[in-house]
Structures are given as C-alpha cells and as structure tokens.
Write a protein that binds this DNA or RNA. Sequence first.
DNA 1: CCATGCGGTCTGTGATGCAGACTAGTCTGC
DNA 2: GCAGACTAGTCTGCATCACAGACCGCATGG
Lengths: 123, 123
Amino acid sequence: MTTDSETGASRAAAIASLDRLIHEPARLMIVTVLATVAEADFVYLVRETGLTKGNLGAHLVRLEAAGYLEIEKTFRGKVPRTVCRLTDAGLAAYRMYRDALRRTADELPEVRAGSEDGWLNRA
Amino acid sequence: MTTDSETGASRAAAIASLDRLIHEPARLMIVTVLATVAEADFVYLVRETGLTKGNLGAHLVRLEAAGYLEIEKTFRGKVPRTVCRLTDAGLAAYRMYRDALRRTADELPEVRAGSEDGWLNRA
DNA sequence: CCATGCGGTCTGTGATGCAGACTAGTCTGC
DNA sequence: GCAGACTAGTCTGCATCACAGACCGCATGG
C-alpha cells in the first residue's frame, strides 16, 4: 500500500496534534525569533514580528502562562526593559512543533486530479 | 553577519503570509484530505478528520465562501449526499500553502543555546 | 406503527486574535 | 525650568471564530 495506509486519517491526526499555542502564526513568529536569538526584548520582537505592541504583549502573556517563556524585567539605565527568553519547556515545545510541522509538510500530498476510490462513505 | 541577514524578520514575514484559512488545523485536515482523494462526502470527512458534524459543516461553509471548494448536493438513492471537491482556487491555495509551509518548516532554526548578539534593541 | 440510526444543518457560547487608547517616565529644544 | 515629543509597555474593548450540542428529515428494522 502507500506509505501511509490510512491516507487522510493518520495525517489528520498528526495535524490535529499540532500545538495550537505555537501554531498560531503570531506566536510562531515570536517563538521562532526566540529560538534563533535566545533572548529578545520587547521592541526587538515588535520589529521582527511586525505585531502591534498590544497584540505582542497579549501573546507573550499567553506564552508565559503556558510556561513556554520567561519574562524578565530589567532596567537599562533608568528605563525599564522586558527581556524574553524561551524556557526549557518552550524549547522542547518548539522542537516538537517544528518536527511535527516538518513531517506534516513533507507528507502533505501532491494533488491528485483523478477522482480515485477511497473517498467512499463506506468504511 | 550571520548566515541569514534578517534572521527573524524575513522568516516572520513568511510565517505571517501563511493562508490563515488553510492554516487552521481543522481546515488543513479537510483540505489535505480533499487534495488527496479529490472528492469526499460529508461523513467521510467526519471520519477522516474526527471533527464533529457541526464543526465540519461550519468549516466547509467557510472554505466554500472563500471559493476553495464546491459543495455538490447529490442523491444516493433517496438519501441526499453532500460531495465536496476542491476548486482550482482551492488547489492553488493548497499548493501555495504547502509550499510555504515546507519552506517555513525547513527554515525553522535549530535552537541556539548561547545568548549571542542580535537581540539588542538598538536597530 | 413505533423506535432507532444515519445524514446534515442550525444556533449559542466561550475563547482569542487584534488594534487602538492610555500611562509612565525620559530626553531635547526653547 | 518648562513644554513638547518620543520611547517603552500595559490595558480595555471589539469582532471574529472555533467548537459542541441540540435539532430536523428521512429511511429502515422490529
């Protein structure tokens, strides 16, 4: 049989198992940036992601709540600054997601023009 | 500079450009199934995706509204049946998404443990 | 004739993504 | 020394959307 016996079903399961928290494009951008640079402050993230401050702040809160990143409040001179960094859990989640995404992306089938069997309701 | 000049920025743009309509896991499952089998009826999709009927119906409507798939009402004997098929636009969108996703997935960086430069706020 | 199961649609609700407004404090020009 | 502009960041409100359960119609089995 084909490489994947259940065609859609197993793929669907794989897709469904994607971490929704990271899957969200805005957060995927954030996490990707943080995976790349290890540390980033708020404005750097704003610039890299193109998100508005409000939006970014909300996503950061969500990621922090999930334990995926820690937010460290520091001061640069007298100006407060927020530095974000992925936690171990965040790193693990990122790796898992990336892995799953690659597998998913690789397995996304080419389009078949012909209407072959397999789509029948039965079974 | 590093291997990728803008590190995050370009990647972020690529991620942001992902088709949200398809990016949604539920719909990605649907579209993937349809790309695979070309045609599928409602219950087949329910089984393949594991979605509830209500949820699936809503997503189908959305995809139809976007012009990504056509919903054909037929009868099997006396029982009405709904057959879904990707439109050309849907196929194109799927291909584009898949392509973008693969590129994105491939480019998702490995984690760098060290806190290197690049994250600074200053430009 | 009634009950059950299959096929499919519809409505309500909770979550969430998003953007703009607002605050706090610093620096520059007059 | 004061006013205005800018940076840094948070908070609130709105619109959207995903999800699930309830509901309806039809056909079939007892």
